[in-house]
Design a protein around this nucleic acid. Structure first.
Lengths: 198, 198
DNA sequence: GCTATCGCAATACAACTGACCTGTAAACGA
DNA sequence: TCGTTTACAGGTCAGTTGTATTGCGATAGC
């Protein structure tokens, strides 16, 4: 066996270079040569790890979704004691908004993928696959809150869950466009939660 | 003076050809040659009407926003009698969702522009300019409803207006991704309105 | 009829794109 | 030591991109 290299580690490095470019210029502005230069490697090396550009895009999308999920998990996991459903929801929603530079970059990349996904079957499957789990997690919290009497009995958890997801996504767009400051978006989320919880 | 031609009419024709391509392949998939072919004209003629590609994009964005506003205006204007604030809001929101093929195309193009706008100062100005007016229109309806006792007194019209806009935008994304069917999105809007109006 | 101007076609061009294809060095097992 | 496999650098290629240039026909005022 010849020289051994951690393939996954290299691929992650390349994906992160791709994000840096995509968050500045969009996915279509990221050529293989640009990504290679940003990662500090040659075009040949990049192609050694990703046979086609499409492979690279799909891998990078999977990686960024994974990181976002882990970030949310870490934030929720670090909550003290036994957090209420409302707290869980609020912290998750807040982590989904582009409030700091890192998550702003992440959201910019996600949006870039979203646009491609609308026209690209393969990316669409990836983009859609996380939604049901998130929706179910939200619905479960609302169900718990209903049992505790914190949410009115006539609210449908699944409906409210999808409303929350859609709201955050819409707000995200406006924060990225600088129509809303981040704190204002968070205030709007809280206002919505005020109505959901009694 | 030589032959006179209606420049604006030609430009509109070209813009519409651009939309057809952009809604299928995205804005970056629309080269000048593609657009010219779709419009049934030569590349030379297209360049005669738009000196640069950027000029074409900016013009087409202005045109599509104008058409969307006109569509909403027509729908709202055709409401019988003296429509209630809730009816006005619901019909406007419904028209903003991509429920039929035409508005789906329109939304796909808007999204394509949105992504560019995040990175492009000139487009961002255009993309943002319609929001305040829409927000104020929504807020005005909610204010009217509060006076009529149809919305609780402690609701802030401006907050609720922005929540509505963001919600529809988030839902639009998921409809375009085929995560939600159109009717489901409309049902979610109605559910949200049920909570806003007493 | 002359000519300036407009409308448009055709072509050219330099830059860039992703995919592919070599050549080579290094590491390991036999 | 040899052969095989992996890691990478560099170059090539055909195709596409936006823009610039040139030329020519039609039309209107003089």
């Amino acid at each position: 066996m010849p020289k051994r290299v951690d393939h996954d580690e290299r691929r992650h490095r390349i994906a992160e270079a791709l994000w840096r470019i995509a968050s500045e210029r969009g996915l279509d502005g990221a050529s293989l040569r640009d990504v290679a230069a940003e990662a500090g490697i040659s075009l040949g090396q990049l192609q050694h790890y990703f046979r086609t550009k499409d492979d690279m895009l799909v891998f990078a999308l999977g990686h960024i979704s994974e990181l976002a999920a882990r970030r949310i998990g870490a934030r929720v996991g670090s909550l003290a004691g036994d957090p209420s459903p409302r707290t869980l929801l609020r912290e998750t929603l807040a982590e989904m908004l582009p409030l700091d530079d890192k998550s702003r970059t992440g959201q910019l990349v996600q949006i870039a993928y979203f646009v491609r996904a609308v026209h690209d079957e393969r990316l669409r499957r990836h983009a859609k696959e996380g939604i049901p789990a998130l929706r179910e997690f939200f619905a479960a919290q609302i169900r718990r809150a209903k049992e505790g009497g914190d949410v009115a009995a006539d609210r449908d958890p699944d409906t409210e869950a999808m409303l929350l997801i859609s709201l955050v996504d819409g707000l995200t767009g406006y924060v990225l466009l600088d129509v809303l400051p981040g704190e204002e978006a968070l205030r709007l989320v809280d206002a919505h939660l005020d109505r959901l919880f009694t």
